[in-house]
Protein backbone atom coordinates (compact mmCIF):
# COMPACT_ATOMS: atom_id res chain seq x y z
CA UNK A 1 0.00 0.00 0.00
CA UNK A 2 1.55 3.33 -1.01
CA UNK A 3 0.50 6.84 -0.10
CA UNK A 4 -1.17 7.50 -3.48
CA UNK A 5 -3.39 4.44 -3.19
CA UNK A 6 -4.25 5.26 0.42
CA UNK A 7 -5.13 8.86 -0.49
CA UNK A 8 -7.07 7.54 -3.48
CA UNK A 9 -9.17 5.23 -1.32
CA UNK A 10 -9.65 8.07 1.19
CA UNK A 11 -10.78 10.43 -1.58
CA UNK A 12 -13.17 7.79 -2.87
CA UNK A 13 -14.58 7.21 0.60
CA UNK A 14 -14.97 10.99 1.14
CA UNK A 15 -16.83 11.30 -2.17
CA UNK A 16 -19.23 8.48 -1.31
CA UNK A 17 -19.87 9.86 2.19
CA UNK A 18 -20.25 13.48 0.95
CA UNK A 19 -22.95 12.36 -1.49
CA UNK A 20 -24.79 10.24 1.05
CA UNK A 21 -24.71 13.06 3.62
CA UNK A 22 -25.78 15.68 1.06
CA UNK A 23 -28.87 13.68 0.13
CA UNK A 24 -29.64 12.72 3.72
CA UNK A 25 -29.13 16.21 5.26
CA UNK A 26 -30.84 18.21 2.51
CA UNK A 27 -33.43 15.45 2.07
CA UNK A 28 -33.03 16.04 -1.63
CA UNK A 29 -31.20 14.43 -4.53
CA UNK A 30 -31.62 17.36 -6.90
CA UNK A 31 -28.70 17.64 -9.31
CA UNK A 32 -27.68 14.05 -8.66
CA UNK A 33 -27.84 11.44 -11.41
CA UNK A 34 -29.55 8.33 -10.07
CA UNK A 35 -28.36 6.49 -13.16
CA UNK A 36 -24.71 7.07 -12.32
CA UNK A 37 -25.37 5.84 -8.80
CA UNK A 38 -26.97 2.68 -10.17
CA UNK A 39 -23.88 2.13 -12.31
CA UNK A 40 -21.61 2.58 -9.28
CA UNK A 41 -23.68 0.04 -7.33
CA UNK A 42 -23.25 -2.40 -10.23
CA UNK A 43 -19.50 -1.63 -10.35
CA UNK A 44 -19.04 -2.46 -6.66
CA UNK A 45 -21.27 -5.53 -6.82
CA UNK A 46 -19.49 -7.08 -9.80
CA UNK A 47 -16.05 -6.15 -8.49
CA UNK A 48 -16.43 -7.32 -4.90
CA UNK A 49 -18.13 -10.68 -5.42
CA UNK A 50 -14.98 -12.22 -3.93
CA UNK A 51 -15.73 -10.30 -0.73
CA UNK A 52 -16.16 -13.46 1.35
CA UNK A 53 -14.18 -15.94 -0.71
CA UNK A 54 -10.94 -14.00 -0.98
CA UNK A 55 -9.65 -12.31 2.18
CA UNK A 56 -6.84 -9.83 1.54
CA UNK A 57 -6.86 -7.64 4.67
CA UNK A 58 -9.23 -6.15 7.23
CA UNK A 59 -8.81 -2.81 5.48
CA UNK A 60 -9.70 -4.29 2.09
CA UNK A 61 -12.75 -6.18 3.32
CA UNK A 62 -14.10 -3.34 5.47
CA UNK A 63 -13.71 -0.76 2.68
CA UNK A 64 -15.53 -3.08 0.24
CA UNK A 65 -18.40 -3.46 2.69
CA UNK A 66 -18.59 0.32 3.21
CA UNK A 67 -18.54 1.02 -0.54
CA UNK A 68 -21.25 -1.52 -1.29
CA UNK A 69 -23.44 -0.45 1.64
CA UNK A 70 -23.16 3.27 0.88
CA UNK A 71 -23.76 2.87 -2.85
CA UNK A 72 -26.94 0.85 -2.32
CA UNK A 73 -28.08 3.26 0.40
CA UNK A 74 -27.57 6.16 -2.03
CA UNK A 75 -29.58 4.43 -4.77
CA UNK A 76 -32.32 3.69 -2.24
CA UNK A 77 -32.44 7.33 -1.10
CA UNK A 78 -32.65 8.59 -4.68
CA UNK A 79 -35.23 6.15 -6.02
CA UNK A 80 -36.96 5.39 -2.75
CA UNK A 81 -37.08 7.84 0.10
CA UNK A 82 -36.46 11.10 -1.76
CA UNK A 83 -37.69 10.14 -5.20
CA UNK A 84 -39.94 13.23 -5.22
CA UNK A 85 -36.79 15.34 -5.53
CA UNK A 86 -35.22 13.15 -8.21
CA UNK A 87 -34.63 15.07 -11.44
CA UNK A 88 -35.88 12.37 -13.82
CA UNK A 89 -36.47 14.95 -16.58
CA UNK A 90 -32.76 15.65 -16.93
CA UNK A 91 -31.28 12.35 -15.81
CA UNK A 92 -31.82 10.69 -19.17
CA UNK A 93 -28.42 9.33 -20.26
CA UNK A 94 -28.95 5.89 -21.85
CA UNK A 95 -26.94 3.67 -19.48
CA UNK A 96 -27.46 0.64 -21.71
CA UNK A 97 -24.97 2.33 -24.06
CA UNK A 98 -22.45 1.98 -21.22
CA UNK A 99 -23.46 -1.42 -19.86
CA UNK A 100 -23.54 -3.40 -23.10
CA UNK A 101 -20.16 -2.27 -24.56
CA UNK A 102 -18.50 -2.77 -21.16
CA UNK A 103 -19.89 -6.30 -20.96
CA UNK A 104 -18.86 -7.17 -24.52
CA UNK A 105 -15.38 -5.72 -24.05
CA UNK A 106 -14.99 -7.63 -20.78
CA UNK A 107 -15.54 -10.87 -22.68
CA UNK A 108 -13.08 -9.89 -25.40
CA UNK A 109 -10.31 -8.26 -23.39
CA UNK A 110 -9.50 -9.70 -19.97
CA UNK A 111 -6.67 -11.29 -17.98
CA UNK A 112 -8.40 -14.62 -17.45
CA UNK A 113 -11.55 -16.09 -18.92
CA UNK A 114 -13.10 -17.01 -15.58
CA UNK A 115 -16.46 -15.70 -14.27
CA UNK A 116 -14.94 -13.68 -11.40
CA UNK A 117 -12.25 -12.20 -13.62
CA UNK A 118 -14.68 -11.26 -16.40
CA UNK A 119 -16.97 -9.60 -13.84
CA UNK A 120 -13.98 -7.76 -12.38
CA UNK A 121 -12.99 -6.59 -15.87
CA UNK A 122 -16.59 -5.54 -16.60
CA UNK A 123 -16.61 -3.49 -13.38
CA UNK A 124 -13.35 -1.78 -14.37
CA UNK A 125 -14.65 -0.84 -17.83
CA UNK A 126 -18.02 0.26 -16.45
CA UNK A 127 -16.46 2.37 -13.71
CA UNK A 128 -14.44 4.30 -16.30
CA UNK A 129 -17.66 5.63 -17.88
CA UNK A 130 -20.09 5.43 -14.93
CA UNK A 131 -19.85 9.17 -14.23
CA UNK A 132 -21.11 10.11 -17.71
CA UNK A 133 -24.81 10.31 -16.73
CA UNK A 134 -23.85 12.64 -13.86
CA UNK A 135 -21.69 14.88 -16.08
CA UNK A 136 -24.48 14.80 -18.68
CA UNK A 137 -26.98 15.92 -16.02
CA UNK A 138 -24.72 18.79 -14.92
CA UNK A 139 -24.30 19.87 -18.55
CA UNK A 140 -28.08 19.74 -19.10
CA UNK A 141 -28.95 21.73 -15.98
CA UNK A 142 -25.96 24.02 -16.69
CA UNK A 143 -24.88 24.11 -13.07
CA UNK A 144 -24.14 22.01 -9.98
CA UNK A 145 -24.60 22.67 -6.28
CA UNK A 146 -21.31 23.40 -4.55
CA UNK A 147 -21.56 20.22 -2.48
CA UNK A 148 -22.10 18.20 -5.68
CA UNK A 149 -18.98 19.75 -7.22
CA UNK A 150 -16.98 18.76 -4.12
CA UNK A 151 -18.35 15.23 -4.55
CA UNK A 152 -17.25 15.16 -8.18
CA UNK A 153 -13.83 16.59 -7.35
CA UNK A 154 -13.22 13.92 -4.71
CA UNK A 155 -14.49 11.19 -7.04
CA UNK A 156 -12.34 12.37 -9.95
CA UNK A 157 -9.29 12.74 -7.70
CA UNK A 158 -9.59 9.13 -6.46
CA UNK A 159 -8.82 7.57 -9.84
CA UNK A 160 -6.18 10.25 -10.60
CA UNK A 161 -4.46 9.21 -7.35
CA UNK A 162 -4.78 5.57 -8.45
CA UNK A 163 -2.94 6.46 -11.67
CA UNK A 164 -0.10 7.81 -9.52
CA UNK A 165 -0.32 4.63 -7.41
CA UNK A 166 0.14 2.49 -10.57
CA UNK A 167 3.05 4.67 -11.67
CA UNK A 168 4.62 4.14 -8.24
CA UNK A 169 3.98 0.37 -8.33
CA UNK A 170 5.43 0.12 -11.83
CA UNK A 171 8.71 1.78 -10.86
CA UNK A 172 8.96 0.17 -7.43
CA UNK A 173 7.62 -3.35 -8.10
CA UNK A 174 7.45 -3.59 -11.87
CA UNK A 175 3.70 -4.19 -11.38
CA UNK A 176 1.24 -2.93 -13.98
CA UNK A 177 -2.26 -3.82 -15.13
CA UNK A 178 -3.07 -2.40 -18.55
CA UNK A 179 -6.82 -2.98 -18.22
CA UNK A 180 -7.07 -0.99 -14.99
CA UNK A 181 -4.52 1.57 -16.19
CA UNK A 182 -6.14 2.41 -19.53
CA UNK A 183 -9.63 2.44 -17.99
CA UNK A 184 -8.34 4.68 -15.20
CA UNK A 185 -6.84 7.09 -17.73
CA UNK A 186 -10.14 7.30 -19.62
CA UNK A 187 -12.05 7.74 -16.33
CA UNK A 188 -9.79 10.60 -15.26
CA UNK A 189 -9.80 12.28 -18.68
CA UNK A 190 -13.61 12.50 -18.49
CA UNK A 191 -13.22 14.77 -15.45
CA UNK A 192 -10.72 17.15 -17.08
CA UNK A 193 -13.12 19.93 -18.02
CA UNK A 194 -14.86 19.56 -14.67
CA UNK A 195 -11.51 19.82 -12.85
CA UNK A 196 -10.81 23.02 -14.81
CA UNK A 197 -14.19 24.51 -13.90
CA UNK A 198 -13.85 23.38 -10.27
CA UNK A 199 -10.41 24.93 -9.82
CA UNK A 200 -11.21 28.11 -11.73
CA UNK A 201 -14.67 28.69 -10.22
CA UNK A 202 -15.62 26.73 -7.14
CA UNK A 203 -12.30 27.30 -5.38
CA UNK A 204 -12.87 31.03 -5.87
CA UNK A 205 -16.18 30.80 -4.10
CA UNK A 206 -18.27 30.94 -7.26
CA UNK A 207 -20.99 28.45 -8.13
CA UNK A 208 -20.08 25.81 -10.68
CA UNK A 209 -21.96 26.82 -13.82
CA UNK A 210 -21.21 25.61 -17.30
CA UNK A 211 -21.00 28.21 -20.05
CA UNK A 212 -24.51 28.19 -21.49
Amino acid sequence: MNVFRFLGDLSHLVAIVILLLKIWKTRSCSGISGRSQILFAIVFTTRYLDLFSNFISVYNTSMKIVYITCSYATVYLIYGKFKATYDFNHDTFRIEFLLVPSAILAFLVNHDFSPLEILWTFSIYLESVAILPQLFLVSKTGEAETITSHYLFALGSYRLLYLLNWLWRYFSQGFYDLIALLSGILQTVLYCDFFYLYISKVLKGKKLSLPA
Binding site: D9, N60, M63, K64, Y67
Partner: peptide, 10 residues
Protein backbone atom coordinates in the same frame (compact mmCIF):
# COMPACT_ATOMS: atom_id res chain seq x y z
CA UNK B 1 -5.42 -17.79 -7.09
CA UNK B 2 -2.26 -16.96 -9.00
CA UNK B 3 -0.81 -13.46 -8.72
CA UNK B 4 -2.41 -11.46 -11.46
CA UNK B 5 -5.89 -12.91 -10.98
CA UNK B 6 -5.76 -11.81 -7.36
CA UNK B 7 -6.76 -8.15 -7.30
CA UNK B 8 -5.51 -6.63 -4.10
CA UNK B 9 -6.74 -3.12 -4.91
CA UNK B 10 -10.21 -1.76 -4.26
Amino acid sequence: ADGDALHDEL
